[in-house]
Amino acid sequence: MRVLQTLTTGPEPCTYLPDQEATLEHVVVAQLSPEEYEQKMNDGWRKFGPVLFHPVCARCQECRPLRIPVAEFVPSRSQRRALAKNAGLEVRYARPTIEPTRLALYNRYHQHQEAQKGWPVGERDTDDYAFSFLHNPVPAVEISVWEGESLRAIVLADVTPSTVSGVYHYYDPTSEGSSLGTFAMLQTIALAQKLGKPWAYFGYWIATCPSLSYKANFRPCEVRQDDGQWQRLFV
C-alpha cells in the first residue's frame, strides 16, 4: 500500500444517527493490493475509489462491518419472492463504467431516497461517479440488471482473495413493489458464489438505522466486534 494522504474529518452531525456526531479517518492511496484491502476491511475499514475510511467516533461505535458466509447463506422467504419477481431480468457482469444512462439512474435513485428517507443531497456528475467507483486500485465488477434494453439496477463490487465486497447499489425507484433492491443485494452473494469466495461483505451495519439495518436480513451474517473478532449475529 502506498499512501498519499491521511486526514480526519469531523466531528460533524452523523448522517445515520441524528443524535450522534461522526468522525472519520481517511487514507488516500496510490497503490493498494487486493490482499491489503481485505486486511483493511477485516480491520474495520471501507473505501470509495482510492479513499479508505473508517469511523473513529468518540461517543458511538454503532457502525459495524457485516459479512455473509456464502456457503451457509439461505435466502429467506421474502428474498426468494424477490428472486421470483425479477426472474425475467438479465444480469450482466463487466468492468465498472459511466455513461449518461447509469448516471441518470443513480441520480433518480438518490432523489427518491432524499424525498422518502431524508438522505442528504447526493447528486453526482461524471467526475464524481468515476472517482468513487471507477478509479479503483483493486479489481472491481459492475453487476447490471436489465429489462430488455432498459437498465434497472447497478451493483458495484470489489473483489479480494476471499471476498466480494458490495461497494454500492442503486436501482430504478419506479420499480416499487418488485423488491428490486433486495434482488440487487442478492447479486453480490451470487457473484461470490460464482467466484468461489467464502465471504460477501456488505459494508457497515447499524441496528437502529433503517438505511443500514436491512443488511442483517441476509442470514446467517457476522458483525465485527470492537476487539476485531467476527460474531454471528443470528443463529
Rank of each mutant, 00 (worst) to 15 (best):
H112M: 03
H112N: 06
Q113M: 14
E114T: 08
E114L: 09
A115P: 03
A115Q: 14
A115V: 04
Q116K: 13
Q116L: 03
Q116M: 15
K117W: 09
K117G: 00
K117I: 00
W119D: 05
P120I: 01
P120V: 00
P120M: 09
P120E: 03
V121S: 11
G122N: 04
E123Q: 09
E123Y: 01
E123T: 00
R124K: 07
R124H: 12
D125C: 06
T126K: 11
Y129V: 01
Y129F: 12
Y129W: 00
A130I: 00
A130N: 10
S132W: 15
S132D: 13
F133V: 00
L134W: 14
L134E: 02
H135I: 12
H135F: 13
N136L: 14
N136K: 06
P137S: 14
P137G: 11
V138P: 09
V138H: 13
V138N: 10
P139H: 13
A140W: 10
V141L: 11
V141E: 15
V141I: 09
E142N: 12
I143D: 04
V145Y: 14
V145M: 15
W146M: 00
E147S: 07
E147M: 08
E147W: 10
E149I: 13
E149Q: 13
L151P: 05
L151C: 00
R152E: 12
R152Y: 10
I154R: 15
V155M: 07
L156S: 04
A157V: 02
A157W: 05
A157Y: 04
D158V: 00
D158H: 11
V159W: 10
V159T: 04
V159N: 03
T160G: 07
T160N: 11
P161E: 07
S162D: 11
S162T: 06
S162V: 01
T163V: 02
V164K: 08
V164F: 01
S165F: 04
S165H: 09
V167N: 04
V167H: 06
Y168S: 04
Y168H: 11
H169G: 12
Y170A: 01
Y171M: 15
Y171E: 15
D172A: 09
D172Y: 12
P173L: 05
P173A: 13
P173Y: 14
P173I: 14
P173F: 13
